[in-house]
Design a protein around this nucleic acid. Structure first.
Lengths: 404, 404
DNA sequence: ACGACTTACTTAGAGACCCTAATAATGACC
DNA sequence: GGTCATTATTAGGGTCTCTAAGTAAGTCGT
């Protein structure tokens, strides 16, 4: 808990820690000494003069621990290594995983992770674990995917345990949007008391909500599937069973479909109706909208308005104060989306006497989910204490100085 | 925490408490001794034989403490007194409060509470506090209403502090739907690990979500306002600022409006277009639907389908396992609503590999909100420990046996 | 019917955690 | 250079919950 406050504050003195945590100075002294001993934090400089003894600031020691984030998307796989500060120190991405069966894909991923750690010169002892993030339903506790994607063979396959086996590191399975959401928190983009949501748009649209610094988990940890909430009670049925699903109005594949129905636009952007990777087609539409193409802009703005409409629902239900936009599909035309969604929220929530909802782009950019996955591991092991050993002490990698 | 487990189990032995709480038998012994001393629990009988020393069961001592619930609705005011088991031991209701300014209404409410406690013979020392529940936005921390209802004068009026002053008892302000929701939990209608929602329909439609035995609170404790989530992106604008609000499709006032547009039905049910209390008109429609009137049934079923549609959204976002229907507007045609909403959930969620969502009526009937308000106080003071004194001990009303 | 066994509960002592109170350290200010 | 304000540390104690050992109260076998 103290560590989390230090992280949030970036640099903080012991007195400030005491007031922030509610603990007494004596206890803080003790805890900070232990953290210093573990190498997790370092003393760094003086605080502003206060008329007495100057405060010695403590802050996270970024290279003390690392987390690995692996994101499996429909087409690509992104791997990042982040330090304690949440900053990526190494990154790689490659294609082809989605067309393999898991038996073949996971060892490949494992070898890539190994290679990345080696080239980045990261001491393996300092790696707390791997955060594996995917879209769609999953069983976090067993580390199993509950969707037959990318291929049938992945359904019910124990991806997390198998990857853990290959790597010899703990592997946490989680949702891409949830990971991106917690990434914002760790990086300090939202306040520690903020209740906020993340809209994650890549090939699909996912969502994650964070309350008091932790991801909201419902009864089965598959909450906030924003892509399949309905925005129109009279809409068409979706393969998911619901009607009027947001994704079919506002998702990248929907926009490509809509653009293909506009012959002028389709020709102008050289859209390929047979392209199997619709994200590149979508990126072209987004780029055209950015460049001022009226037809493309109209499409993107309508998509954004639908997203804004869903954002109102999510914001009202969860009582959010901030919504973060993350995922590569916001990479190109993110500012348009941000403006329109913000406008929609302001318009629809103004009449309520409630606080406004702020819309912001992710601080972690396109790799938000992968980075978030790595951060989930850091949080799980260091803050929530899931990785502590049986005797209650923290696992101390080689190199850390043990307190006597 | 131990008390909460005892409540949930109704009757439980110390060994079972140990396994349920994760504490050791020794600790449980100590804690239970203290609870016995406070009079909060009593030993009651033997458990099933296990081959050794029989287990002595402990259970809540219902008359040890009481909570008062006060519900302010648009037309009526309901006051209940419940014991530790959550059972109402006294109840009264009256009209007229909504037409008064708060300066006049709150002393009236206070006198009614006093009278009710007296006639019920409840020792005032054993009353932990009052749960005041209302609809619409509010500021729980200050006990202030953020809506100009029932009249302008109530807006920003410190209702909770004033009532506390009049009564000399702590007063908690909360949302009616949230109260009804937590009432279900206390009564054991949902399991302790359930994540569930409550749809509360009286004059409007409210919602509450409970996670791990506590009401979900967003950034301002005004979450899950179900009546004003949109079910139709192309719908009409609502005074709240949103479009296609559920309440305008499925709420009691909407149904009365729809029925008045059907001359045959309006005549048959003798609906009064000028009636200011549309709940009695709505009850007539619901009764007709129950009795098999095809037009009335069609109206109610359509309303239920809209509610079911919203239920899908809420269930997906919060990942619920159960939805409770509460409030007087479900009193008459509750079974129709329950069946249709259940059907809609099953239909829309089937394709997902997820768990089903169960729809159940409230165990607390029409007074669910008032009872829930009283229970909120019990929970707040006894389980969450908000009412403990400075030295960390529980407040011990006269009559309780203090441990040496 | 008696004693051995099983299971439930209690007591005693130890350790972790965090508190209060007193003490040491360190730079600002006159 | 001494006093003061403020920060940090140390010492000692209280509370909580644990382990380990002991006691209570049944069942079961002979």
């Amino acid at each position: 808990m103290v560590l989390d406050v230090i992280r949030a504050a970036r640099s903080i003195s012991r007195v400030e820690l005491a007031t922030a945590t509610g603990l007494t100075g004596a206890t803080i002294s003790e805890v900070v000494r232990e953290l210093l001993g573990d190498g997790l934090v370092v003393e760094a400089g003086r605080g502003a003069p206060t008329g007495g003894k100057p405060r010695t600031m403590v802050q996270l020691n970024p290279p003390a621990r690392y987390g690995v984030g692996v994101q499996l998307e429909r087409n690509a796989c992104v791997i990042v290594v982040v330090d304690l500060a949440g900053r990526p120190v190494a990154r790689t991405s490659f294609h082809g995983v989605s067309s393999m069966p898991p038996e073949q894909a996971l060892p490949l991923v494992a070898s890539r992770v190994d290679a990345l750690l080696t080239t980045a010169g990261v001491d393996r002892e300092k790696v707390l674990g791997v955060g594996l993030v995917t879209y769609g339903p999953q069983d976090r506790s067993t580390g199993v995917l509950l969707t037959p994607q990318p291929t049938e063979e992945w359904y019910d396959y124990p991806v997390a345990p198998r990857l853990a086996e290959s790597l010899g590191l703990p592997v946490l399975l989680d949702n891409d949007a949830a990971a991106a959401a917690i990434g914002e928190y760790w990086m300090g983009a939202v306040g520690p008391h903020s209740t906020y949501g993340c809209f994650y748009m890549a090939t699909g649209i996912g969502g994650g909500v964070v309350v008091a610094g932790e991801v909201y988990r419902g009864s089965s940890s598959n909450s906030a599937e924003i892509g399949h909430i309905s925005i129109d009670v009279n809409g068409d049925e979706c393969p998911c069973g619901n009607v009027g699903c947001l994704e079919n109005y506002a998702g990248p594949s929907a926009l490509v479909r809509q653009a293909l129905e506009m012959p002028d636009l389709a020709r102008r952007l050289a859209l390929d109706p047979a392209a199997d990777d619709f994200l590149t087609e979508f990126a072209r539409i987004a780029a055209a909208a950015n460049a001022g193409d009226p037809e493309a802009l109209a499409l993107v703005e309508r998509s954004a308005r639908y997203l804004g409409h869903a954002a109102v629902t999510v914001a009202v239900l969860f009582d959010l104060d901030t919504i973060v936009l993350a995922g590569q599909s916001f990479a190109v035309a993110g500012s348009i989306y941000q403006a329109v969604i913000q406008q929609e929220l302001d318009r629809r929530l103004f009449a309520r006497k409630a606080h406004p909802v702020r819309v912001v782009p992710s601080v972690n950019g396109s790799d938000a989910a992968a980075i978030g996955g790595a951060i989930l591991v850091l949080q799980s092991e260091l803050i929530l204490g899931h990785g502590r050993s049986e005797d209650g002490t923290r696992p101390v990698p080689a190199g850390a100085v043990e307190t006597p």
